[in-house]
Structure formats: C-alpha cells, structure tokens
Amino acid sequence: TTVEVQGVEYRFDNPEEAEKFAKKMAKSLNLRVELHGNKWRVE
C-alpha cells in the first residue's frame, strides 16, 4: 500500500498502518486524504 503526501510516496506492507499514517499526515498538514485503488493520497 502506498501513501502519497504532496508528491512524496511512502510504502507500507500493512494497509492499516498506511491508513493510520495517511490520516495522521492529513491532520497535521491540514489536508484531506483520499483512497485511490491501493494508494492513499494526502492533498
């Protein structure tokens, strides 16, 4: 599972970890998070 934060990609073996990371990043950067296939995008 991939998390893309403002163009930078982070890879996770565990989808739940990816989701937690994406939501945490979105909250700290005041952005929103969307799931596209198996990629979380924070923008």
Rank of each mutant, 00 (worst) to 15 (best):
K24D: 14
K20M: 12
M25T: 07
T1Y: 15
N38S: 08
E43R: 10
P15M: 08
D13W: 08
A26S: 05
L29N: 04
K20R: 12
D13P: 08
E19G: 04
G37V: 04
P15E: 07
T1K: 06
M25V: 10
K24C: 15
E17Y: 06
L31G: 13
R41I: 15
D13E: 12
F21S: 00
F21W: 07
D13G: 09
G37I: 04
R41V: 15
G37L: 06
T1I: 12
A22W: 02
P15G: 07
A18P: 00
H36R: 12
R41K: 12
A26Y: 02
L35F: 14
E19Q: 06
A26D: 01
Y10I: 05
G7M: 04
R41F: 15
V5W: 06
R41E: 08
A18K: 00
W40R: 02
E34G: 07
E17W: 05
R32V: 11
V8C: 15
N14I: 08
N14W: 07
R32T: 12
T2Q: 07
L35I: 07
N30K: 08
N38I: 04
R41H: 11
A26P: 01
T2K: 07
V33Q: 03
S28T: 13
F12M: 02
V42W: 02
V8L: 09
Q6E: 11
R32L: 09
E19P: 00
V8Q: 08
F12K: 01
L31W: 05
L35C: 15
E9V: 13
V33I: 12
V42P: 04
V3M: 01
V33A: 15
Y10S: 02
V42S: 04
K24Y: 14
E16M: 11
G7T: 03
D13L: 09
E16T: 10
S28Y: 13
R32P: 10
V42C: 15
V8P: 00
V33T: 06
W40Q: 03
W40T: 02
V5F: 08
V8R: 11
V42L: 09
Y10R: 03
S28L: 15
K27I: 13
E4Y: 13
E9A: 08
K39Q: 08
Q6V: 10
F12Q: 00
V8K: 11
E16Q: 11
K39A: 08
L35A: 06
R32Y: 08
G37K: 06
D13C: 15
K39G: 09
N14L: 09
A18I: 01
V8Y: 08
L29A: 04
K39R: 14
V42M: 05
H36I: 14
N38E: 07
E4Q: 10
N14H: 09
V33R: 03
R32F: 08
W40Y: 07
F12H: 01
L35E: 04
R32I: 10
Y10W: 09
K24T: 13
F12C: 14
V8M: 10
A26Q: 02
E43K: 09
W40I: 06
R11N: 10
S28W: 13
V5H: 05
